[in-house]
Write a protein that binds this DNA or RNA. Structure first.
Length: 576
RNA sequence: UGGGAGGUCGUCUAAUGGUAAGACUGCGGCCUCUGGAGCCGCGUAUCGGGGUUCGAGUCCCUGCCUCCCAGCCA
C-alpha cells in the first residue's frame, strides 16, 4: 500500500460515493425490497405542520426521507399536516417550502396538504360510523379527560357511546353544518376504554372548530385530529414507509386500526429518535416563544437553529446534509454535540470560502522606513484549497491596522505574534520588526512602530529565514467601514431545557450571544461582497453578508470562528 | 405501581452468534506565508448479575437506569 497522496490527480478528484451508513430503517427497506413488499416500491414523505419554521431537527427527517427515496429510486412527497387552523399560517407554509428546497430535497409535483383530503377523511368517518366504530360524544373536554382514566386505571365508557348509527350520522352532519358551538361535541372512535394504551381509549376523530383555515377558508367548521388524519394521508399517497419520531410509537396501533377498519393501503410506520443538540433548543413551541418575546430578532435570526436562521448565518445546505448523514439514525435518546455540526460546517466552508483580510479590533501600525504616500498592490491567493478561485490585489501602505490580539508589549510564553523587537510576517506583505510603541495617558498601546525589510515583498524570504508568525492586516487609508456581527451560542447550558435549579429555561439564555463590531477595518475588495458567498476572514473565521447590508454599509455575520490552537493553550493555562 | 421504546468509547453511530469499528472531541507529533487547512500517532466503551454456546454487544432469565404517553396539539 502506497503512502503517496500526490498520485494521479484524476484519481484524487474522483467524487467518492458517500458511504451510506447502515441504520435500522434502511435495513428494513432493504429487506422489504428483497421480499418484494409493495412491489419493491419505496415512497417516503416529509409531513410538517405549518405552525412554525423548520429547524435542524427537521433537516434530519428531510435528509432521511429524501435520502432513502433517492437511494432506492423511489419517490418523496412534501405534505403539510394542516389539521389545526388555529395554529397554522401561510407564512409558515412558504418558509417550509423554501427550506426544504434549500436542503435539496425534491418533491417534484407532489406537494400536498392534509386539507386536500378533508372530503375523503369525512367519508372515512361516515364509513366508521356505519360500521358502528365511531360515535358522536357530547361530553365536555373536562369530562372526556375524567372518563379517560389514568396511566394505571382504565377509563370508563362515555354515556353517548351507544347512540344509533342514524343518530350518529345525523349529528355528525349537523356538526359539519355548523349547528353546534365549538367544544360541544366530538366524533370519537369506538375502540377500547380499558386499553393500556391511552391512544386507544376512544380517541377523538373530529372536533368542532369555527376557525378559518389557511387553505380551505370557512368551508369546514369541524376538523380532523392528527391521529385520524396522518395515517390515512400516508395511505392515500401510497407512502410505503411512514418515517416519524419516537413519540408516535404509541400511536401506531391506532393508525393500523384505522387502516384496517377502512380497508385501505397500509403503509409501514417506522419511528426514529429526534435530534437533540447541545446548547440548542429544538422545540417549536420554545422557538416561537423566543421570537414572540424578542429574545431574538425573528425566526431567521442567525442565532436560531431554524434552517432560515442557520442559512442566514452562513451554514451551507451541503454541510447540513453531511451532518445529517454523520449523526445517523437510531432509536436511542441521545444528545449530539454541537461540535459535530460545527465540524461539518468548517469542513465545507474551508473548501469554498474566499479568503480575505479583515481587522476586527484595530491597532494602528506605522512602518517608519516605508515611503510616505506609497501604495503597493499585493497579490493574494483567494482560496488555497481551490486554485481556480484565483488571486486578487490588496493595497499595502505605510500605515496599517492589525488585530490588537496580535500584539503584546510583554508577550507570554508561546505567544509568537508581534512584540517589541520581534519580526513577524504581514501576510502577502512584508516582514516587519516592531521598533517602538506609543501609549495613551492610561498606558495603553495605541500605536506600534515597525521597520520593514524591502527584500521580503509579498511576504517572501529570499534568504530563507523563518518567522514564527504571520499576521493579517488592512491598509488604513484603503480600509472600508462595515459592521460585523459575532455570534455565540444562544444558550449557556449544554441542555437549554435544564431547569434543575428551578429556573425558567429562558434563564439559560446567553446574554452575550450577539456582539456587534461597529468599526472593523476590511480590505477594499469586500466592498463588492456578494450575498450567499462565504468568506474566510483569515485567521478569524467564516463570514457572510447579512441581508441587513446596504450598498453603503456591508454587514457581515460570523458563521463560525476558525479553530484556534493558541486560544486553546491560552484557555488551558487559564484553567490551571 | 399501566403501556410503549431504549441502554456500545466523553459524544453520535457501526458490528445482523465469530478479531468491538468509524466519525467528532481530547492528547502528542509532523507540516505550514492563516497558531487555519492537511498529515501521522495515542487514548477511552458493550448498564449489573446469572445462563445457553466451542464462541455472546448480539440469544434466554433477572435486576437497574433513561425516554415517551392521561390535548377537542402535531
Amino acid at each position: 500500500m502506497s503512502n503517496d497522496r500526490n498520485g494521479d490527480p484524476a484519481e484524487a478528484s474522483q467524487p467518492e460515493a458517500p458511504e451510506r451508513q447502515s441504520n435500522f430503517i434502511r435495513d428494513t427497506i432493504l429487506q422489504d425490497i428483497a421480499n418484494g413488499k409493495h412491489g419493491g416500491r419505496v415512497h417516503t414523505r416529509f409531513p410538517p405542520e405549518p405552525n412554525g419554521y423548520l429547524h435542524i431537527g427537521h433537516a434530519k427527517s428531510i435528509c432521511l426521507n429524501y435520502g432513502l427515496a433517492q437511494e432506492f429510486g423511489g419517490k418523496f412527497n412534501l405534505r403539510f399536516d394542516d389539521t389545526n387552523p388555529t395554529k397554522e399560517e401561510t407564512e409558515y407554509v412558504d418558509s417550509i417550502i423554501e427550506d426544504v428546497r434549500w436542503l435539496g430535497a425534491d418533491w417534484e409535483d407532489r406537494l400536498f396538504y392534509a386539507s386536500d383530503y378533508f372530503p375523503q377523511l369525512y367519508e372515512y368517518a361516515l364509513l366508521l360510523i356505519r360500521k358502528g366504530k365511531a360515535y358522536v360524544c357530547d361530553l365536555t373536554a373536562e369530562q372526556i379527560r375524567e372518563y379517560r382514566g389514568t396511566l394505571t386505571e382504565p377509563g370508563t365508557e362515555s354515556p353517548w357511546r351507544n347512540r344509533s348509527v342514524e343518530e350518529n350520522l345525523d349529528l355528525l352532519e349537523r356538526m359539519k353544518a355548523g349547528e353546534f358551538p365549538d367544544g360541544t361535541r366530538t366524533l370519537r372512535t369506538k375502540a377500547d376504554m380499558a386499553s393500556a394504551n391511552l391512544n386507544l381509549r376512544d380517541p377523538i376523530m373530529y372536533r368542532i372548530l369555527h376557525a378559518e383555515h389557511h387553505r380551505t377558508g370557512n368551508t369546514w367548521c369541524i376538523y380532523p385530529m392528527y391521529d385520524f388524519t396522518h395515517g390515512q394521508c400516508d395511505s392515500i399517497e401510497g407512502i410505503t414507509h411512514s418515517i416519524c419520531t419516537l413519540e408516535f410509537e404509541d400511536h401506531r396501533p391506532l393508525y393500523d386500526w384505522y387502516i384496517q377498519e377502512l380497508g385501505i393501503f397500509a403503509p409501514q410506520q417506522l419511528e426514529f429518535d429526534r435530534l437533540n443538540l447541545t446548547y440548542t433548543l429544538l422545540s417549536k413551541r420554545k422557538l416561537l416563544a423566543l421570537v414572540q418575546d424578542n429574545h431574538v430578532t425573528g425566526w431567521d435570526d442567525p442565532r436560531m437553529p431554524t434552517l432560515s436562521g442557520i442559512r442566514r448565518r452562513g451554514y451551507t445546505a451541503e454541510a447540513m446534509r453531511t451532518f445529517c448523514s454523520r449523526i445517523g439514525v437510531s432509536k436511542t435518546n441521545g444528545m449530539v454535540e454541537l461540535g459535530l455540526l460545527e465540524h461539518a460546517v468548517r469542513e465545507d466552508l474551508n473548501q469554498r470560502a474566499l479568503r480575505v483580510m479583515a481587522v476586527l479590533n484595530p491597532l494602528r501600525v506605522v512602518i517608519d522606513n516605508y515611503p510616505e504616500g506609497r501604495t503597493e498592490l499585493m497579490e493574494c491567493v483567494n482560496n488555497p484549497e481551490d486554485a481556480s478561485a484565483g488571486t486578487r490585489e490588496v493595497p499595502f501602505s505605510k500605515t496599517l491596522y492589525i488585530e490588537q490580539d496580535d500584539f503584546r508589549e510583554d508577550p507570554p510564553k508561546h505567544f509568537y505574534r508581534l512584540s517589541p523587537g520581534r519580526e513577524v510576517r504581514l501576510r502577502y506583505g512584508y516582514l516587519v520588526t516592531c521598533t517602538s510603541v506609543v501609549k495613551n495617558e492610561k498606558g495603553e498601546v495605541v500605536e506600534v512602530h515597525c521597520s520593514y525589510d524591502p527584500a521580503t515583498r509579498g511576504g517572501n524570504t529570499p534568504d530563507g529565514r523563518k518567522v514564527k508568525s504571520t499576521i493579517h492586516w488592512v491598509s488604513a487609508e484603503h480600509a472600508i467601514e462595515a459592521e460585523v456581527r459575532l455570534y455565540e451560542n444562544l444558550f449557556l447550558t449544554e441542555d437549554p431545557n435544564d431547569s434543575s435549579r428551578g429556573q425558567e429555561w429562558t434563564e439559560n439564555l446567553n446574554p452575550k450571544s450577539l456582539e456587534v463590531v461597529a468599526h472593523p477595518k476590511l480590505e477594499p475588495s469586500l466592498k463588492h461582497a456578494k450575498a450567499g458567498t462565504s468568506y474566510q476572514f483569515e485567521r478569524l473565521g467564516y463570514f457572510c453578508l447579512d441581508r441587513d447590508a446596504t450598498p453603503d454599509k456591508p454587514i457581515f455575520n460570523r458563521t463560525l470562528g476558525l479553530r484556534d490552537s493558541y486560544a486553546k493553550i491560552d484557555k488551558a493555562k487559564a484553567k490551571k
